[in-house]
Design a binder for these strands. Structure first.
Lengths: 203, 203, 203, 203
DNA sequence: AATGAATGAGGCTTCATTCAT
DNA sequence: TATGAATGAAGCCTCATTCAT
């Protein structure tokens, strides 16, 4: 067994480092300027030439999808990990907290909408949806949330706390926790009023 | 009164009609394509030349702000009207229903963010905020909503039901009512848990 | 009848002048650099901004097709005019002379290939083909060209004299006449040998 | 003879094989996409990395010239071989047939124009020109072609049959033989009309 | 006051070429 | 020597805005 493998890896690690830089830069630029962030600015921020962006991501769309994929992957993994938690209600709240915290730093709604057509993102989103569904099922079974709530409901409400805060011009960094608490109170069994519409179906 | 005034008036009414056409066209185009809707398309839809857009609105930003202003004005008036309602709790729910219904048809979050710097929009928003504050005060006073909720909270949560629905790929037209009901349940006094963060201050 | 029509026309004449400048500039640039001539260079040569090119021609392809159309139109008209000539053989030779002379100044083979998909160019080409067909029919009927020649043959050979000259590095300006004469000798009835392949059909 | 030579040799033969692969790939790509064929596609088709292309050919121009050289070399050799043929007229026709057949498969006009400045191609072209000159001299001496024709004339007309066919949208594979026959009839002594221009001089 | 032609900056993407490994 | 990642110039096209008519 020789150390020859080291240089081979280093070649790739250069490219991998650039890829990471690009994802980070894209993440930051999209956070600051939305989808209109230019590829040129992303490249500059990543410290690479414009052409390098397209070596890693064939189109801007693909770059957006790659950024989104990192977020959705993290969320999916979080949901899966929490399936082993002892208290289903606390697990669901924890998931929503992590989800909002992540999104607090970056509003990925736009990005997610833009990459709806990406098959990888679609798969990850389905997996995330499934994970949330399981969390909700467990929480519902033990009475931690109201009976008439589905995983899809929670999936759709996941980002609400952050969106609420976005309307504020200069919010305190943890303000979203306030709105998560309010919305979670709305999900609880106690004091629940009948809902006027049936839950949506997952496509 | 001279005859000259006749053509002047007709010109003015022409201009006024153009302005209305432009606002309607801009509203529709922004609804379909978001902020990227082009001035050229808006002009075409309004049936006027591109140059005419800029005679009425010096920049695209100003046009966006004008569209936003129509929405915020309507909401402000709705809030004010509901101050005379007999049941404060029902009045607040009605306001949130109207707000969500209006936004259901047009996602103006983007527009609103884009026109945050417009002084007219800022004024209208402040007035809307004040109206919501009064609605909430009345509802809180009679126990229809929890004690620890402020008008600013409701202002920020106002759009949450619509945003939740936006994540859905093919929502039923009234799905937002489901999420408004859930969130409103979270605002009720009944079954409220303590909130982890203090309410935000209005700038 | 008022002179009001004058200013209206002048508006258009400004645009029309730009359109003509653009066609001339494009013609020249394509002649010098082939299809790789850049839109920016064409705009510069025409003395207009880049954006103006796209106001007149939505895509570069459309511009190419417009240039080609001017040539094909001229040729079609030439063919039609010569249908009234007294001597069919001389008329056909005259047509080929005009065709080669026009192409001597600009090699439009590439352009024509590039704009094969343009419907206007296709129509003009069909009309040109029909005109050449009539010229050839008349010439054949009076024995000026060999019996086994069709209009499509002449259409395809039309550019051969110019192409031959293009291989020469520094040809005299009228050298193409030499090759037209040789090829036309090949089209004559006198001394014709049987042809190994049937004539092509027009699509 | 040392063992070291083995890897060295194998490296060389590898390089030679790569060179051949590249020429074949370039030939095919240029045939399919013209001069715009990308170096990346050529490398991929040859099964080597992009960098390897530039190890063998310093620039894309050089690669084009190398492809052209293979064609011109073949033609030159064909011309030289046919100098020993018994029937000068048939030999000239055979040469033109081979030339057109070769070009039928690949349109190298563009390539040839692009590599006009390459000294190797220039030398080969001169040798080809000389060979054609000898073929024409012999044919002229025995009356197989008209008196006023030179080798340069035939050199320039060599590609005409193929070019004629290129205008056709869907030609039969042997259509060029028809136009070669017509043009060759124009080169014959019988029925020749005086030519309006003197023959070109070879640079 | 309206028109629509012109402007030109800026966006995404391609590609020949260079260079570190 | 081969690789393929990186470069950056250049290309086509869009669009908010200006201006002559």
């Amino acid at each position: 067994m020789r150390i020859v493998s080291a240089p081979v890896r280093s070649l790739r690690s250069d490219a991998a480092r650039n890829r990471e830089s690009l994802l980070a830069a894209a993440d930051a630029e999209f956070a600051e300027h939305g989808l209109e962030a230019s590829v040129a600015d992303i490249a500059r921020r990543a410290g690479v030439a414009k052409g390098t962006v397209f070596r890693h991501f064939a189109t801007k769309e693909e770059l957006i999808a790659a950024v989104v994929a990192t977020y959705v992957t993290t969320l999916r993994d979080t949901a899966r990990d929490l399936l082993d938690a002892e208290e289903p209600g606390a697990a669901l709240l924890e998931f929503l907290t992590v989800a909002a915290d992540q999104r607090q730093q970056r509003d990925i709604t736009l990005l997610m909408t833009a990459s709806a057509g990406d098959s990888n993102v679609a798969r990850l989103r389905d997996e995330l949806h499934a994970g949330i569904g399981s969390l909700v099922d467990r929480a519902r079974d033990c009475g931690a949330v109201r009976k008439d709530i589905t995983g899809t409901d929670v999936f759709l409400l996941m980002c609400a706390p952050v969106h609420a805060v976005e309307y504020s011009s200069d919010p305190s960094p943890d303000l979203w926790r306030r709105y998560l608490a309010i919305i979670f109170d709305g999900l609880r069994a106690e004091g629940a009023h009948p809902l006027p519409q049936p839950p949506p179906t997952w496509p």
